[in-house]
Design a protein around this nucleic acid. Structure first.
Lengths: 142, 142
DNA sequence: TCATTAAGTTTACAATTGTAATCGATAATT
DNA sequence: AATTATCGATTACAATTGTAAACTTAATGA
């Protein structure tokens, strides 16, 4: 199936480790206590899977283990976004960004940065986006 | 687990049906022939699951069935995006959009529309985005 | 009419994921 | 030293997903 992605539950663990590391399984579990009503063993299972997937490193600290991330949060987020966008036609990406912008709140600064970036992109932007979908999977007239 | 989402393989089917409907299972399979080397039965299984999930409607047309979408492509795309963004801190959304813009090519028209939208959003944008993450799951200083 | 197609349905089976109990080793406590 | 509390590791088990064979029924062609 898919090549070693981070599942939603695993993502919860990763966020904790990205924020605090090195960190022990108990500490991870404590942090997630209210949000997810997981038993300690559940947390441990997820940690184990993340270690096996190469997402977390372990270091024996005395008798216990301390975990640290082997991938960055940005990397992982970007990958998820890519996976998502790869599922749709190129010509739908623009509209999707619009939808995000409509629904989510960004700060003035963030919007300003986006404006800048867009201005720059406009210089080299094509007049038309070409669809590369399998014929029959999108209605674009290329 | 997750509430009736569309899996990647199912998504392939949906794209075909969104583009061409009503459509029969054989036609769907023909369209996907080169992209996915699925047996006809595989296609049928996926169609069956989508019908069960309420994503496709069936209509008996003589002896065979014709399938049509019960959800729109935009709805589905937006939902996927929401699921993804919900996994991250509010304060990371802006940066994520930037990343998309950097990596994907948008047309002049699309960029123009985004500019417009951003301009409008700026009027009501806050100076700061507030993080609502579980403490310990992100490093934002709120 | 009888065999062959073709449609959908049922069954299958491994991998992934969500969730957790149990086990074995080690450390801390009494 | 004996007991208990902790760790990580192993095992468990159902739901979802990817992928497909087998089955049933109805239609079509010989």
């Amino acid at each position: 199936m898919q090549e070693n992605q981070i599942s939603p539950s695993e993502w919860e663990i990763m966020r904790v480790v990205w924020t605090n590391h090195p960190i022990s399984s108990r500490e991870i579990n404590d942090i997630l206590k209210e949000k997810k009503e997981w038993k300690l063993t559940t947390t441990k299972t997820l940690i184990g899977r993340l270690v096996k997937k190469g997402m977390l490193s372990t270091e024996k600290q005395g008798r216990k283990f301390e975990y640290s991330p082997l991938v960055t949060e940005k990397e992982s987020i970007d990958e998820s976004i890519d996976d998502l966008l790869d599922q749709m036609c190129n010509t739908k990406v623009g509209r999707s960004i619009e939808t995000i912008l409509e629904k989510r709140t960004l700060s003035k600064t963030e919007l300003e940065q986006l404006s800048e970036l867009i201005k720059k992109k406009k210089e080299t932007a094509p007049n038309k986006i070409y669809c590369t979908c399998t014929p029959g999977q999108c209605g674009c007239v290329v």
